[in-house]
Every structure is written in structure tokens, then in C-alpha cells.
Design a protein around this nucleic acid. Structure first.
Lengths: 302, 302
DNA sequence: GGATCTTACGCCGCGCGTAAGAATA
DNA sequence: TATTCTTACGCGCGGCGTAAGATCC
């Protein structure tokens, strides 16, 4: 069963006339007759009763019609969707971000791309660094943004595109909320609330006690969950500062822990990019080097 | 876009490996490469990123996959359905009956066919004689059963397969309910309730007053509606007797009106029939000639 | 005779397999 | 070097158009 035969049959079912159907298909009438006959032979029965003015589809023909119509429509839809993707009328862009990555620095660039590509359709997937690395390998995302993806994979390229400051997050009523900073040693007996996959928090936990373990810190999925834990006294947060902005929490720096982390753009070398991914890539790569974020927000209450 | 290409692409999407996909499709690997390349050219973009162990579908490929899968599944479903129709695993049978035709005489034959053809699927369509004639012409029904389809169409064949007695149907409280018979003249001022398209009732109405008109009789769609009309005093019925059986009505014959009508089987000469239609045709044609129905029920209350 | 579908025949293109080449690990 | 995909080349099948035939109105 070939697509041509289906096209011919659909035309024939519309016209119920071999001559006119052949015209519609831009082939000779004998060619259409032969093609239909072949289809009938394959299906094991006549599709149409040839009765000149009274010609009509057989039972088999009537049953085949909607199925083959769907088949043909699917092929047509595929071509149309492919065209939309080719022209940029539909421009999907899938980004992988670690759970702690602040996406706001992307928004101006995405806005600019959306103006140039009205079909832009962004998908943001959040996951651990390992997830992002796998997504890049599998091609499940176009670009990844975060940190700590570095691996032995030689095809992974990366550039710093943003900086993020991590800080200790306390309930405002905590007695240490007004401190200029807190020493790492003061945290030895504290429970830490961190976001799963956050490299900065992982490093802090390693500093506090050899390895990061489930007993040492609460690992939650995102900032909202973390702040809820902190608010309810389950521990002290160690979170990227942007998550605390606008919330009633105190931010305090930690002496002896890395606070400023680079947010990096990762891509796979030698892999061609869709228009939207290419545009974002260029905007982020060629933008002015990211400035350190304003540190004055530390010790504020958000 | 050819069906082969779709098949090859689906295999490739499963295996993500040109060599194995070619094996699955029983073609050489270069042939599959070329076929996929041609499909990619038609769609205007790569479907798969060739990265050996890391090969994976592109965005375009991911989008095409479900659509082309549906296309291929439709074609497969068409072939399967055609096979079912060919083998008799599915044996549709569409019968056209006039609204007054008693279908019960068909049931033994249909039961016998169902035993031989487990896939039998009967559709009974009710309509006027004109409807039935059109359905036969259009091939919308396999066989028609009723009366009054005779036309100038030379291809219409028919045989008597049953007899049906029409009678005047009265509410049991009607004073004439116990009469042996009623003269046509006594009905001149009566309103008749008849089923639309019933040739017997039409003839009675013509006898009563030149032509059948909407003012002379109530024309309803089926027996249930007719009995409701009669029960509510809207008129006297003239209906085939089988519709009254088991109902609380009186049946009285009419002197001067044709009461015994032949139920005939109609088919289109020179048109091959599906297995179920052929079977029913043969059973009805070669059955013993129909006997006149028992007239003793007349004047009973059903 | 006109309309409609089928059959016959020769041709061209397309898809196939084989074989060789390129790229990557 | 082994694996994997692409390119090159020649062949044969299959679908096409033209022309003639069959059938029905």
C-alpha cells in the first residue's frame, strides 16, 4: 500500500469517476485504474463498484475510506509541521536548568528572540547536573544552564554566563539574623536545608562533615519547598540569593564557604542547533561578560 | 513521502542504528540511509543526529515520530480490516426495510447465517420505498425488503418472500370493534392513521378520496407512534397486523380494500454480494414459498 | 456514437544491492 | 583497526503515458 495509491483512492472516492479522479491527480486515467486495481488486489476485494453513473464505493471501500483518509492526513500534517519547523513558524527551544539556576537573566534574551521568531516555544526542564548532562547527550534539551556538569566528555563546551551568590538563609526571628557573617564552624550542629543537586550546598555539606549525607541536610526539590522548611524551623537554608528575594528571610554570608558560583552555559560541540537555540547561544556567548551580582542584599531581609 | 520511507524511519527511530534498522526492514544499510536522507530532504531537516552510540532523533524527528507512526498504523489497520472483511471474520449485512415490514420472518435465516458467519453484523435501515430504491442504487444497503419498489429500473430484481395482512385497527372501546368487517364507504368521514410509506394504507386512502393527502390521514413514522395516535382517538389505524399483536386493539377487515400484501425481496441484478448478503439472498430465494398468514387473528383483540 | 473503464506495450525513473570511501573512537 | 554511516555505480522492477479494446448507455 503506497501513499500514491491512497491519494488516488481518496480522489476516486470523492469523484466516483476514474476519469475525473485521474485529472485531479494529474495522471492518465489508465494509470489510476491500474493503481486502484493494485490496491484492490492487495486489500483482497473491490473498493468501488464500476457502474458508470451509479458507481459507488463498496462496503470495503466505505470502510477503508476513513482509515486511509486518516493515514493521508497524518502524512500531510507531518509535512506541514516539518515546514513550520523549517521556516521558524514553530521554533521550539528546550532548556535544561539546574533547580537552583536563576532563569531571570535569560528573559531579556528570550524576549529578543521571541520578537525575531514569533513561533518561539520555550520549554524549561529542571533537573540535577547529571540530568542536564544526560539531556544534552540524548539531545533531549538544546542547551543546558547551571553548574557542575563538567565531565570527561570532551564534546561538552561551556561558558560562564551569570553569577549567583549563595547565602545562609535564616528565619528573621533567628538570633543570628543580624550577624555580619557566620563561621562555618558555627554550623556544625545545624541541619542544612538545600536544594537537591545544588553544587554550592553540596560543597558546604562536604566542608561540614566529610560527605554529604541524608542525615546532614534536608534535600528538597526547589526554592519554595526549601523556604517552607526554613520557615518551620527544620533547618538553615543554603540557597542562591535570588530565591530569597522578596521573601521575609534573613540572608547571611558564611565565612569559609564558597558563596559566589558561576552559572554556565553548556552545549554539545559539533551539534547543529535549531534557530532558537542558535540565537540564544549567540546572545549569551557574545553578551558582555556577566558582572558579579550586587552583594549589598546580603544581610537584608529580602 | 512514501510508506516505505515511513516504515524505515519508524524502524530507525526504534533502533537508533542504521545497520540494525536495515536488518529489521530486510534491506541493505545503504538503501536505508538513502531512503532516510530522501525523507529528510523532503521534510527540510535532519530526522536523526548521527552520533554512533549517541545517535538520537532531532527535534524534527521527535515531532514526526508520533505523526508518522499514526500514519503507518492507519495503513496497517486498513489492511487488517480488509482481511477481516475478506475472511468473513467481519461480515456486515445492511438491509433496507420499509417501515411496515415485519422483520420477524427474517430472524431464523439470520440466525442460521450467524452460526456460519460468526462475524455477522446486521444493520437494519428503515425507510420509504423510495429510500430503499435509492439505497439499492447507491449500494447503501445490500438487500431491500418491502413492497412497492417496482420502477422503470431494469436492474431491479424481486421475489415474494413473505405475506402480510393489513387491517383496520380500532381502540377496543370503539363500537365497531366487534364487527365482522367494515365497508370502505363507512370510512369516508374517518381520519386514518397510517405509517408513512405504507403502500397498503396509501391505496386505501386513494380509494377513500382520490389522492392521499395530509388532510386525509395522519402519517406517522412507525407502529409505536401509530398505536399511540389510535389509542388517543386521533383516528383509525390501517396497519400491518403484526404490529398489533400483543396490543390491546381490535383488528377488523375492510371490505373493498386490499388487505393481503406481498413482502418482496429486492436486489440489484449483476451486482456481486458480500458473503452475508449472498447467504441471506439464497436462504430467502430458495425457501419454501411463503404461506398466507393466519387470518384467524382478525377481529381478535390481539 | 459517446462516455467510461480496462488491457497492451514500450519507456523512463527510482529504489535496490554491491562495493568502495569517509569519519570516528 | 573496527564500527558505522555515506557515496558511487549499475541493474531491474514498477509505475507512467499512449494507444487500442471492451462495454454500456
Amino acid at each position: 500500500m503506497e501513499m500514491q495509491q491512497i491519494r488516488y483512492f481518496l480522489a476516486l472516492a470523492r469523484t466516483l469517476n476514474f476519469t475525473r479522479a485521474a485529472e485531479e491527480c494529474h495522471i492518465s486515467q489508465p494509470a489510476l485504474t491500474r493503481s486502484i486495481s493494485a490496491l484492490e488486489a492487495e486489500l483482497g476485494g473491490d473498493l468501488i463498484r464500476r457502474e458508470r453513473a451509479l458507481s459507488h464505493l463498496t462496503e470495503l471501500g466505505e470502510r477503508m475510506l476513513p482509515i486511509l483518509q486518516r493515514c493521508y492526513d497524518s502524512a500531510a500534517a507531518a509535512k506541514e509541521l516539518a515546514k513550520a519547523l523549517g521556516t521558524g513558524a514553530l521554533a521550539p527551544l528546550t532548556l535544561g536548568l539546574t533547580r537552583t539556576t536563576d532563569e531571570t537573566f535569560l528573559l531579556p534574551a528570550l524576549g529578543e528572540i521571541a520578537r525575531a521568531l514569533p513561533g518561539l516555544a520555550v520549554t524549561i526542564k529542571r533537573g540535577s547536573s547529571e540530568d542536564l548532562l544526560n539531556w544534552l547527550r540524548e539531545g533531549t534539551c538544546d542547551l543546558a544552564i547551571g553548574s557542575g556538569l563538567e565531565s570527561e566528555w570532551s564534546r561538552l563546551d561551556s561558558w560562564t554566563v551569570d553569577r549567583d551568590i549563595h547565602c545562609l538563609v535564616l528565619p528573621v526571628e533567628d538570633p543570628r539574623a543580624g550577624a555580619a557573617s557566620i563561621a562555618v564552624d558555627d554550623l556544625q550542629n545545624e541541619k542544612i536545608v538545600a536544594i537537591d543537586g545544588c553544587a554550592a550546598a553540596a560543597e558546604l555539606c562536604r566542608t561540614l562533615e566529610g560527605e554529604i549525607g541524608p542525615g546532614k541536610a534536608h534535600m528538597v526539590a526547589d526554592g519554595r519547598e526549601a523556604l517552607g522548611f526554613i520557615r518551620n524551623g527544620l533547618g538553615l537554608g543554603f540557597l542562591p540569593q535570588h530565591l530569597v528575594r522578596g521573601e521575609a528571610f534573613a540572608c547571611v554570608s558564611v565565612d569559609g564557604a564558597s558563596m559566589e558560583w558561576e552559572t554556565r552555559l553548556y552545549c554539545v560541540a559539533g551539534r547543529e542547533r535549531l534557530p532558537a537555540a542558535a540565537a540564544l547561544f549567540n546572545l549569551l556567548r557574545h553578551a558582555a561578560p556577566p558582572r558579579p551580582r550586587d552583594r549589598t542584599l546580603l544581610r537584608s531581609t529580602g
